Simulated assay, not measured.
Amino acid sequence: MSAGGFCKLPGGSVVVALTLPAPGSGERAVRILVHAANRARALTRLRNLGLRAVYLRGNAQPPTPDEITAVLHHPDGLLWRDAPDPTAGELWHPIRALLRISPSGA
């Protein structure tokens, strides 16, 4: 269940969006947004946080304009929320909130 895409911005940087299984949960999926200088650096940022098996193959699900705006206005440039239902009204969360979740859900 790994899907994603990217969008190159006018300044040369990129926003990468990935839909991945949530850490510690095989059933739940999350949408992760990363703002970086290029695609390789975006994926490296995620790998450095412990999401080792992260790859971007193709551009099937590029970030929407709303997603781009959200990640550009966040100081870390790294956000997530539950997927695949963006209409549920859930706000974006800093990546630290996702990585704090333990496998037991507590």
Rank of each mutant, 00 (worst) to 15 (best):
P23I: 10
P23A: 11
D66G: 07
P10V: 12
I68H: 07
I68Q: 09
H35D: 07
L99I: 02
V30I: 05
S102Q: 08
L20I: 12
L56P: 00
Q61R: 10
A3Q: 04
A106E: 12
L49Q: 10
G89F: 15
L72D: 06
D85W: 13
V71T: 06
A60T: 07
R52A: 09
L79Q: 04
P62Q: 12
A42Y: 14
G50A: 03
E27G: 13
G50L: 00
T69D: 11
R28S: 10
A88P: 00
V30M: 04
R28W: 05
N38I: 04
G12H: 13
L9T: 05
L49D: 08
G4E: 08
P86A: 05
L9F: 11
M1N: 01
C7L: 09
G105C: 09
P84W: 15
E67Q: 09
A36N: 04
P65W: 15
T69W: 14
E90I: 04
H74Y: 09
G12E: 11
T87H: 15
A70L: 04
A42H: 11
P62K: 10
R57A: 10
A70W: 04
G11V: 07
E67T: 03
P86S: 06
P23L: 06
R81A: 01
K8N: 14
A37R: 11
R96G: 10
A37H: 12
L20G: 04
W92G: 01
P84D: 15
V34N: 03
S2L: 03
L72A: 08
H35K: 08
G11A: 11
P21R: 15
V14M: 06
P23S: 11
A106F: 12
F6T: 07
Y55F: 11
M1E: 03
P62H: 14
N38W: 06
A22K: 13
L20A: 06
A42W: 13
P75Q: 14
I32K: 01
V34M: 05
R28C: 04
I101K: 08
A17C: 07
L91G: 15
H93V: 00
